[in-house]
Nucleic acid binder design. Sequence first.
DNA 1: CCAGACATGTAAATTGTTACATGATTGT
DNA 2: ACAATCATGTAACAATTTACATGTCTGG
Lengths: 177, 177
Amino acid sequence: MSLPHALLTSLLEKPCSGFDLARRFDRSIGFFWPASHQQIYKELGKLQIAGWVTASATPGARGRKKVYQVVPAGRAELQRWVGCAEDPAPLRDALMVRLRAEAVLGPGSGVATDLQHRLARHRQQLALYRDIERRDFSDRALSRTEQLQYLVLQSGLDLEARQAEFCEKALHWLATH
Amino acid sequence: MSLPHALLTSLLEKPCSGFDLARRFDRSIGFFWPASHQQIYKELGKLQIAGWVTASATPGARGRKKVYQVVPAGRAELQRWVGCAEDPAPLRDALMVRLRAEAVLGPGSGVATDLQHRLARHRQQLALYRDIERRDFSDRALSRTEQLQYLVLQSGLDLEARQAEFCEKALHWLATH
DNA sequence: CCAGACATGTAAATTGTTACATGATTGT
DNA sequence: ACAATCATGTAACAATTTACATGTCTGG
């Protein structure tokens, strides 16, 4: 379970409110560990109780905004967790189940619908990753931190490209059989 | 949520008991939609209530064994579901979170441990898939059903190979920076 | 007769999703 | 004033994991 550590990582990059965290998640770590704002608020409460972050109310700012910051104990916990070895989370892919179902049901069962839908999604995600690549990781020397972040992005980039290719391959197979 | 449909697919391939289903899952559909026997028993109960499968007690067999079989309504439901388009389940990968954490924590945080562990796992899974490929999909003409099943296996094969490659790439990067 | 595989479940805890609810601030 | 965005939460539900619990049959 990595949500708390994903939050610690993001807060180390830049202390901010739960709301900001939720927004930043959507465009960075959230690609590899998605979380809704409801989950994030709840988890931030736990992080605070565990003594890994502190929350400071900012009366000057909007509403009842709180800014969270990682304390040394939180940094130590993240350090500890990074050194752990875990089995990868089991992958679940409904598309593969659909293809297996089509295999027993016979032709014309309609998997092509989902294949096309997913092809579009993967291309969309790929385009998004390429935008980020162009904006954040091109045309200049990268720091160590940035190089590692780029490595992670490349893994996403590669995954989406492969999945799009697989959809194309499967669609082509269906069209010719 | 695809578990019921994965079960229907597997039961269409061959009617059997919950126990057998759980075992077969571990070596086929379960690669793409894992499920424990506890989940399977519970879900089989629901499938029966929904009128998609029938259970027949087999007094001759071991213990209180029940054999489940898909009825036409169940086949129709599977057919319907195959035609649906869904967004892919969001992927969650703790390794990517660890790499992002190492990016902010700085060198020596110990991600290499998890990278090596996962590299071993991916190679192991790859070897398993290759065994299946050799045993079930080589050296003879494949039926349409088998060709589709092979397509699904190839997607797993490719995924594991890519993930192993990524681990190697990341380990190499870490060793040289 | 006993170990090991067969066989089926219940219960609790965790994690994640969806729906609902509220209120503050800023720009027009 | 009103809409949009900022901001923080609660509650109910669904799915998964882990731990527990029980009993049967087969081979040695």
